[in-house]
């Protein structure tokens, strides 16, 4: 079912990570992403993997949920890992050689690190942001972080509002899609079998009602907002003011240490991947 998708879903809770200021979380996630891309040897990966595991522990989000979020990536991970293993040529003698296939230690190492990089990246940022931050506070945080742009007349508030409305209506739209799908299935519609053309045609009974109700909903929302005198951010005050607390400084400090650790550990020479690092960043960005 559509609603089984967990990637990017918020799980309410009261863990320390849930209580962090959204701005802190956005900044920490950025640091984390940069650190993951800088990582180039086993030691740094170990450090980042430990960080991720600790984050999972602190957030109290069940392993099941996290495994489920990785599941859709398994195919891509396997595919790129196999390509990496097969295509990488090393300096030393091949680990295994068979017909035209030659497997080098370097290839295996790179494949493992690439897979780790993707998994750590996805899990880490999900824990820091999407799983533990409600969409509303996420956009609040973004708006606040980007507010300097107001000086050069970029309508930050409008963009933030657009984003929160879009995020707010994703579940509604999913629910609506499911409802209409069920209604048409009840009339014998078949969305899953037949030729490509037939299947595309089968979507008409789904898309037409979906568009109609989306337009209607947009209009109703606009009217409702106007009824409450919404005029953008002019004279608008906030109900919940964002404020940095002690815990934010603690986390920022720890992350700064980890980031420093990653840079230091990277200096430890790790011969054959020094070129591969650049290669990875260019070709295997998620």
């Amino acid at each position: 079912m559509i609603s089984d998708i967990t990637l990017g879903q918020f799980f309410p809770g009261k863990s320390p990570i849930h209580r962090l200021d959204p701005r802190t979380k956005i900044i920490l996630a950025t640091i984390f992403i940069v650190a993951v891309f800088l990582a180039s040897n086993p030691a740094t990966f170990l450090l980042l993997a430990i960080t991720t595991v600790v984050l999972i522990g602190i957030s109290r989000i069940s392993m099941k949920v996290i495994l489920k979020s990785i599941k859709p990536l398994v195919f891509i991970l396997l595919f790129t890992a196999i390509l990496n293993i097969l295509m990488t040529k090393g300096d030393s003698a091949p680990l295994l050689s068979f017909w035209v296939i030659e497997i080098y230690t370097e290839g295996v190492a790179r494949a493992v690190m690439m897979a780790l990089r993707v998994i750590i990246l996805i899990v880490g940022t999900s824990i820091l942001l999407t799983y533990t931050t409600s969409p509303i506070s996420l956009t609040d945080g973004l708006e606040s972080l980007l507010s300097p742009l107001k000086l050069i007349r970029i309508p930050v508030h409008t963009f933030a509002m657009m984003m929160s409305i879009a995020l707010r209506f994703i579940p509604t739209l999913v629910e609506e899609t499911e409802k209409i799908m069920n209604a048409q299935k009840s009339r014998g519609a078949d969305f899953t079998s037949g030729s490509l053309v037939k299947r595309a045609k089968a979507l008409i009974p789904l898309l037409v009602p979906l568009f109609v109700s989306s337009f209607k909903r947009a209009e109703e929302l606009a009217t409702a907002m106007e009824c409450r005198c919404y005029r953008g951010d002019k004279n608008r005050t906030k109900l919940v003011k964002l404020q940095y607390k002690g815990i934010d400084f603690v986390f920022t400090f720890i992350f700064a240490l980890i980031f420093g650790g990653v840079i230091c550990l990277n200096i430890i020479p790790y011969k054959f991947d020094s070129f591969g690092l650049i290669y990875d960043i260019i070709f295997y960005k998620v």
Binding site: K179, A183, Q184, S186, G188, I204, P205, P209
Partner: peptide, 16 residues
Amino acid sequence: RFKVGLVMQYPEYQLF
């Protein structure tokens, strides 16, 4: 589903 006909809540949204 042809034998058990279901009219959902607010079925007017399914017209297309």
